[in-house]
Design a binder for these strands. Structure first.
Length: 644
RNA sequence: GCCGCUGUGGCUUAGAGGUAGAGCAGCUGAUUCGUAAUCAGCAGGUCGUGGGUUCAAGCCCCACCGGCGGCUCCA
């Protein structure tokens, strides 16, 4: 279908003479003059006939969009055959034009349709502003494409509609207020407690959805400058490249999460990253999960494939084929899942929102709601523990707990929520849905609020009451009967990339507060940098390096001045910087500057021997995952991954 | 996806219709240096891509592609 929009001061037309296909009209309709109007010239084309509903819908979308944008007062639909050389049949065209007219009328738009199939005279006066003349082509593809697109659109809309209709209220709950829901309007943000400012930012982000900031997110600049990650122009947006330092940090975080869930008792699995769209359970699930997929057309005769947007399918399909006794429950399965979501273009930012990301995803099969709640609480604590290990305390994130009204009406559940708030030890945001729109009845998230006041979820746990049945997951209870378990979805840290984003953003916030920014010691690509004053000190350094085994220590052996090397170490956020010159060699010591204890313009190098230094660093990182340096220990041998 | 802004060597950027200029990084040489940039020289640019206007386009117009912000959504 071809559309030509002209925003006009007026249009005046007169039906002069019938053609063979003319529609019958009243004498009064033959001549019209309409002011302040968006004239929509329409040519319905042959291909539109293969999927008329889709074409009409699209055309209406475009029309409303233009109509609202230019701020016209009314619309005239004007059949205009000359926009296309492959016209649809007159009957069909007229039908579709009428359908458009009906729809616009029913949505309250003042619309007129010029008579079809007449030779008409017309004059109009185009307003001439930048948007006053626009054209659009609605494309309907032949055969399966069109059908599939329509079906996909329908599917998507089912889930999205549910969300749009989802009505919810926000509250706050604090430890020590008797577990009462405090209406958002009554909550005191200005209590002199600094932490509440963040909660307020989070709440505003959630409820108002209006945030006008105009700045490049600090972490995007940092991820490049620190050679952590970067955009990859040759991939799809949101698929990043990770440089050695970034890959190191990522691996360490992954291992940390992996170790923590193993300790909690989960078993690690791996499942495929792509699935057939034809699988009945998946088909169904796709409708309940309003994310957009990467999909690939199957070779002829074969079903289409999509890339997973979470590890749910794989693990559910695995669970369905298992034989599970009540004695095996709660059963916890974990996967570090590369996941793909075709998020809207405008949504993607740096490491915060990606199309390809790494999501730790654990599913727990529980025999009933009682056990589910018990595990839910454990996982709530597990998440706190995992984030704490990364370096985020309760101060660094805001808690949101969300549930259905029905869930909360149960007194026992109410007490359960109060207990969660008590564990948080600070006010939390509560969202209550009037009905269950999703597959879960209760969830929480820990949300990080960044330098620009944007919130994003890290850890989350959800109680899923729907998918066991959908996938046919069963366990056998003590009476030998098959039952459907309740499933917990848990991402203990949230996406790994997002943790990196939060670490960088927090470092930036620290810097704003006058603190030297840095990463936690166990995640710093270089933990200790050794700087020789002159070349002759290198030998001494080589001698002490074996002692520093188990610590990521490198040596700035470049031909630069000491000042330059110190500065570069600072720019790289290196936690420990040791200078070695004649004095140190003679006394067999190091002159160490500790970043954490320094500030801008204030440094205090400390004399210590290499064993003391090693001990000091090991104290901090002892229980954390470790990997060797990602790059050569000699700086002179390293290539630059990013300029500047 | 839609709307707005934006895109000049690896990085940061000057250049408002008339031969693309600099700093950092890189390379070469000198300097072997004590806590936030040693000095000199050399090399490096299809000005995001493709069209168009013009005698002439990095600059004006159009489209597309990236990026940033907003809408919407989520780990």
């Amino acid at each position: 279908m071809q559309l030509l929009f002209i925003h006009s001061d007026y249009i005046e037309y007169e039906a002069k003479q019938k053609t063979r296909v003319a529609e019958p009209i009243d004498e009064s309709k033959k001549h019209e003059r309409i002011e302040e109007v968006l004239v929509v010239f329409v040519a319905v084309e042959r291909e539109d006939e293969t999927n008329a509903r889709y074409a009409v819908e699209k055309a209406l979308e475009e029309t409303s969009s233009v109509f609202n944008k230019v701020g016209a007062e009314r619309i005239v639909l004007y059949p205009y055959a000359h926009l296309s050389s492959t016209l649809a049949s007159p009957e069909m065209s007229m039908e579709m034009l009428k359908a458009m007219e009906r729809d616009l009328l029913s949505s309250g738009v003042d619309v007129k349709r010029a008579p079809f199939g007449w030779y008409k005279s017309f004059t109009l006066q185009c307003k001439g502003h930048p948007l006053s003349e626009l054209s659009r082509k609605i494309e309907v593809h032949e055969g399966s494409g069109a059908g599939a697109e329509e079906k996909a659109a329908e599917k998507l809309s089912k889930a999205l509609e549910a969300e749009e209709k989802a009505e919810s209220q926000f509250f706050f709950m604090d430890d020590g207020t008797g577990g009462n829901l405090i209406r958002a309007a009554d909550f005191e943000f200005e209590s002199g407690i600094e932490e509440r400012a963040n909660l307020q930012k989070f709440f505003l982000y959630e409820s108002e959805k209006r945030r006008a900031v105009d700045r490049i997110p600090p972490h995007v600049e940092l991820m490049k400058r620190l050679e952590i990650a970067d955009y990859e122009p040759s991939s799809d947006p949101g698929n990043l490249r990770f440089y050695p330092k970034g890959k190191l940090i990522k691996s360490l975080l992954e291992n940390h999460v992996r170790n923590s869930v193993a300790e909690y008792g989960a078993v690690e699995v791996e499942t495929p990253i792509m699935y057939s769209t034809e699988h009945p359970s998946l088909k169904d699930y796709l409708e309940r999960f309003p994310a957009r997929q990467y999909s690939m057309a199957g070779k002829k005769g074969k079903p289409d494939l999509f890339l997973r947007f979470s590890a749910c399918f794989g693990q559910f399909l695995m669970s369905k084929d298992m034989s599970i006794s009540y004695k095996n429950l709660p059963l916890k399965m974990f996967e570090l899942a590369s996941s793909f979501r075709r998020e809207k273009r405008g949504e993607l930012v740096g490491l915060r929102r990606l199309r390809k990301f790494t999501m730790p995803d654990m599913h727990t099969l529980c025999k009933d709601m009682g056990e589910a709640l018990e595990e839910f609480k454990k996982q709530y604590e597990l998440c706190i523990h995992v984030l704490d290990g990364i370096g985020f305390s309760m101060r660094d994130y805001e808690v949101a707990i969300r549930f259905t009204r029905e869930f909360y009406d149960d007194t026992a559940n109410k007490e359960f929520i109060e207990e969660l708030v008590r564990i948080a030890g600070k006010p939390v945001l509560i969202e209550r849905w009037d009905q269950r729109f999703f597959y879960f009845v209760l969830k929480f998230e820990f949300n990080f609020v960044d330098a620009l006041g944007k919130a994003s979820a890290l850890s989350t746990v959800q109680i899923d009451v729907e998918n066991a049945e959908r996938y046919g997951i069963k366990y056998v209870d003590a009476n030998g009967e098959e039952k459907s378990p309740i499933i917990l979805h848990c991402s203990p840290s949230g996406a790994i990339e997002r943790c990196m984003y939060a670490l960088l953003e927090r470092a930036y916030l620290e810097k704003e507060r006058g603190v030297l920014p840095m990463l936690p010691l166990w995640l710093s690509p270089t933990q200790l940098r050794i700087i020789p004053v002159a070349e002759r000190h290198l030998e001494y350094i080589e001698g002490i390096l074996p002692v520093l085994n188990g610590i990521r220590a490198d040596v700035d052996d470049r031909e630069e001045t000491v000042s330059k090397k110190i500065r570069d170490a600072g720019r790289d956020w290196i936690p420990y910087v040791a200078v070695v010159g004649d004095k140190e060699v003679e006394k067999n010591t190091l002159s160490v500057t500790i970043r954490e204890e320094s500030s801008k313009g204030k440094k205090k190098p400390e004399e210590m021997d290499v064993y003391a230094l090693k001990n000091m660093i090991e104290q901090v990182i002892k229980s954390k995952p470790f990997r060797e340096l990602a790059l050569s220990y000699k700086l002179s041998e390293r290539a630059k991954f990013v300029g500047g």
